[in-house]
Design a protein around this nucleic acid. Structure first.
Lengths: 218, 218
DNA sequence: TCCATTAGTGTCTCACAGACACTAATATAG
DNA sequence: CTATATTAGTGTCTGTGAGACACTAATGGA
């Protein structure tokens, strides 16, 4: 029995949630898009395998990565019995992928408009999306999709892109300020119209809140 | 690479949350308790393998069963590289296990007082417990641990056993009655002092609520 | 300097969570 | 048979947080 890891890698580009897909160059499913992944080596843990694949495909290392679910239907890979442990990862829009040999055929596609995918990867992405939407409501994963410094509007756009609905600006900001997990910086983002205050995520404060059982209310 | 499924099976006995464990008769970890499990066959899906193991170990079939997490550290099985897909199952207290050949050494142990377990099974149980506590708050898994007909006090005791804290009787009942997912039966449980009304779970109503995004508030 | 655009701010209402104490129905002991 | 112990069952009040809602502030560009 063979075991692979496959990784659903999300990012947000211009307010649209996208997944990283690679075009397959070898059978089966030649020419189809698939999520990046590969076989687990004999001497590496599952998480390590996922990290390795992520690094190989994107060149990035310190990203949010979490195991999603294992898919093991009998016919899911025409080559034989292959079980895959799916992961999902979030990377911020400001990190360009390295234009690598492997990644030559890698593309970011909007989750709303995916073509027919290889294997059962459509199902895996659906599952990842569901998990992402749920986690958004009680964790801080949303911040993983932003650069270190961001404006409140940018943060709100991340939530709106993932949840696929508009949020009220005043309510959104009120909730965030009650949580006290953002640190305002003495800097502003200029270039639009009125300059917007930049913030960074204060992870330490969040840890304390979570220990008290206070969750993230979106 | 070998793949197993392991199943954390919970039940509640006299108000105490228990896990089904089997004493190992063969190396490694002879004599230690482990959660039931076994190798995934070449021609069966993961879920099927879990169902089969569950049936073999307990003799019960239609129970709540859900994939938990996959554990694949390199050294977790001294026999070699074995990845396990862990499941968790809930069975109601009124279903006796068959006293089977396999189950000769099977025992229900309270989750609070477990001995040292084989493999990484302590970690797996911890993870299952966490999942169970979380799911209790937004799903109806609690009902899976009760027989078809039950009293409100019995239901509350299930919640208290899993969450390890006392709940207020009036608040508990008010919330349940607002959800309208219980159907009162024209029967009473006698034998204690004042007879208690019996209820059954009205699954159809719950589905509607969940579709509307209304969650389970405990 | 006027206008278009994006940033930023407060109140009110409603629903739900949690704290809290007594009455009702039966079983059992004397 | 009566008293007592035990478990079942019920309502109110208060505080917190979610969601609906509209205007002013600061800048860039025409």
């Amino acid at each position: 029995m063979q075991v692979t890891v496959d990784i659903v890698i999300f990012t947000i580009q211009s307010g649209v949630l996208k997944v990283l897909l690679v075009k397959r160059g070898a059978p089966p499913f030649v020419g189809r898009f698939a999520i990046p992944g590969g076989f687990v080596h004999e001497d590496e843990a599952l998480d390590q395998a996922a990290l390795r694949e992520l690094r190989e495909e994107t060149g990035v290392a310190d990203v949010y990565l979490e195991q999603l679910y294992s898919f093991g239907d009998v016919g899911r890979d025409p080559r034989g019995r292959v079980i895959t442990v799916a992961y999902f990862a979030l990377i911020s829009a400001d990190r360009p992928l390295r234009a690598d040999t492997d990644a030559a055929e890698a593309k970011w596609l909007a989750v709303g408009q995916l073509p027919t995918l290889a294997f059962d990867h459509a199902k895996i992405i659906d599952y990842a999306l569901e998990r992402l939407r749920n986690k958004l409501e009680y964790t801080t994963v949303g911040f993983q999709l932003l650069p270190e410094k961001f404006t409140l509007t940018e943060l709100q756009e991340v939530y709106e892109a993932i949840l696929e609905r508009k949020l009220d600006k005043r309510n959104f900001r009120r909730k965030l300020s009650l949580l006290r997990i953002l640190k305002p910086l003495p800097e502003y983002r200029r270039g639009g119209q009125r300059p917007a205050q930049l913030y960074r995520f204060a992870a330490a404060r969040f840890e304390k809140l979570r220990d008290k059982g206070i969750l993230f209310p979106f």
